[in-house]
Every structure is written in C-alpha cells, then in structure tokens.
Design a protein around this nucleic acid. Structure first.
Length: 155
DNA sequence: GCCAACGTTGGC
DNA sequence: GCCAACGTTGGC
C-alpha cells in the first residue's frame, strides 16, 4: 500500500528548485533515529511533499515520489561531508538515504500559516514533535493538502 | 538572534 | 535506568 510523507529541508541548503532542475535527488544527512526508522518503511511509489523550513515563508512547495529502495547514507562515511558520522556518532545500524523523483513544483505554496488552519487532526508538523524532519501523513491528511494545493494553484 | 521543544549524551 | 547538561531544529 502506498504511503505518504512530508520531508523538510532548508531551501538555502536544498530546495524544490534544486530538485526540479535535477529531476532526481538523494535524501541524505538524516541523523535522527525516528526518521531513520520511517525511511526503513518507505517503498518506491510513496508520495512525498517537499517542505521548506527555516526560511521566510515555511510551507509545502512541491511533490516528489520515492524511487528505489533505501541504502546506507554515503555522507555518513565521507569525512569531507558535514554529515560525516563515524566514531561514536556511528550507530550499529547505519544511517540511511533514499532517492526521490521530482513530480511537481507549486506556483503557490501551501504555507505553514495556511496548514495550521486545515483540519488535519494530529500531525507532528503542527503539534508537538515539529522538529521531526520526516513526517508520516495519513491518506486523509495527504488528500486534504492535495485538494487545498489544487485550489490555490487553479488557473 | 531568541527561545521553546525535545532528542541525545554521559555521569552516576 | 535516571536525569542534568548540552545540542539541534525551526518558528518567529
């Protein structure tokens, strides 16, 4: 069964524009156990919203799709990477990466301000746990966001 | 730049 | 296994 997610990224670091250009990208640098455990449940074809955080207007700026299967995060083994995680920072189970395929960039994003007005119910994006960089969404939450985005972007 | 929330580390 | 100290995330 298809699953639904929301991935956060700081656009100055890596934004929807970068993915739109490259078409395919690698989600790496995840150094949180809960997020890693989510990655382990991801399957090709899962839908993922691209959320911009720590920027002037935080919100959902795009849609992508999981491609392939997860694999050990190469940045964890790369001493030149800011995400290098050897020694005591290296867990028994390796940190994981997964690849994503660009699907859509929204001309009008769904801002956090607007997201907070939606009847999403329990969602770590707005309730406690808003520091999680990978957030699972129910199909209802995904559909409500999709519907709202389609209204915002209607021509 | 501040600060609240909360995950992680490490001493005991 | 507890918990204080510390570090990081992310909204504002």
């Amino acid at each position: 069964m298809k699953k639904y997610w929301l991935f956060k990224s700081e656009p100055e670091e890596y934004g929807i524009i970068d993915l739109a250009k490259a078409k395919k990208g690698r989600w790496d640098g995840i150094r949180n156990y809960q997020a890693r455990n989510f990655i382990k449940t991801m399957k090709e074809g899962d839908f993922v919203y691209f959320y911009h955080s720590s920027c002037p207007t935080p919100g959902i700026y795009g849609l992508m799709e999981i491609v392939g299967a997860y694999y050990p995060d190469p940045t964890a083994f790369d001493p030149s990477s800011p995400y290098y995680a050897q020694g005591h920072r290296s867990p028994k189970e390796p940190w994981l990466s997964i690849d994503v395929q660009f699907k859509e960039q929204f001309n009008v994003p769904l801002t956090l301000h607007e997201i907070k007005k939606l009847p999403l119910g329990q969602c770590p994006l707005i309730n406690q746990g808003n520091r999680l960089s990978i957030i699972p969404l129910t199909i209802d939450q995904f559909d409500l966001i999709a519907h709202t985005l389609s209204l915002l972007n209607k021509v």
